[in-house]
Amino acid sequence: MAQTRFDRNAQLNGWAFIMPAMMLIGIFMVYPILWSLWMSFQVGRGTNFKFGGLANVERLLNDPVFLRALTNTCIFFIVQVPIMIILALLFAVALNDSTLRFRGLFRTAIFLPCVTSLVAYSVLFKSMFSGDGVVNNVLLATHLVNDPIPWLTDPFWAKIVIILAITWRWTGYNMIFYLAALQNVDKSIYEAARIDGVPAWARFTQITIPMLKPVILFTTIISTIGTLQLFDEVNNITQGGPGDATLTLSLYIYNLTFRFMPSFGYSATVSYVIVIMVAILSIAQFMIARDRRRTA
């Protein structure tokens, strides 16, 4: 009897706590999403639409630009997300060490890139990585390379610049989440481990990583979504070039929506490709997390 009343209370509270958010999401997302879903079945341009069934999906599969954008996006995601997550984690753990000096300085410095304005840093990145920019000058002076690297004008190196740029901008951002989460880890566990002679690396893998797992999962999913929606850097630093080498799905959606003859149905269809990719990846990431929990 007492048990059921408790359950019912929990149910009621469960709904009460999420209700304000759900109402707002219901108002501001449900209708736009229905609209864009419905639009993805429409063909036509401007304000003249007609039902096209799966015509947009068919167009997608035959679209060389879409395939280029999809490939680039996947490359960015596969290469960049792991690098950034690991870097952010290492920085967070290093900066959480209370015996470290200048912690505040380091912490602020590493966070700085994500507040530095996009305009400023894209202008700077372009000039630093230009053919006779400072990066090439340093590399030439130290004889690391014999010829200047065509950073922004070669398809391969342009991708590298974009990966460097996103990593630069977002590592400190991810670090914030880890730093906050580390405050919730009980310090006495570390002390006990240290007294037991557990080495630092083992403390990191055996204690820190498992304790931070929820937040690591969170940042991985958020970074995945962020990279799949990558737009700012490619639009501002490389404009998707050279020769579409850094064109991403989001930049392509933007072009279809604002730069080309408006084709909303088709750009909505491309948008849902990102949703499907996120769905698959999130399921995979959740499964991996769950499997680890079971075997642990």
Binding site: T153, D154, G241, P242, G243, D244, A245, F260
Partner: peptide, 16 residues
């Protein structure tokens, strides 16, 4: 109507 599309297609080939 399709000048932006055409320009994008040409730009894609310029490095090559």
């Amino acid at each position: 109507t399709f000048t932006p599309e055409a320009r994008a297609a040409v730009q894609a080939q310029l490095p090559t």
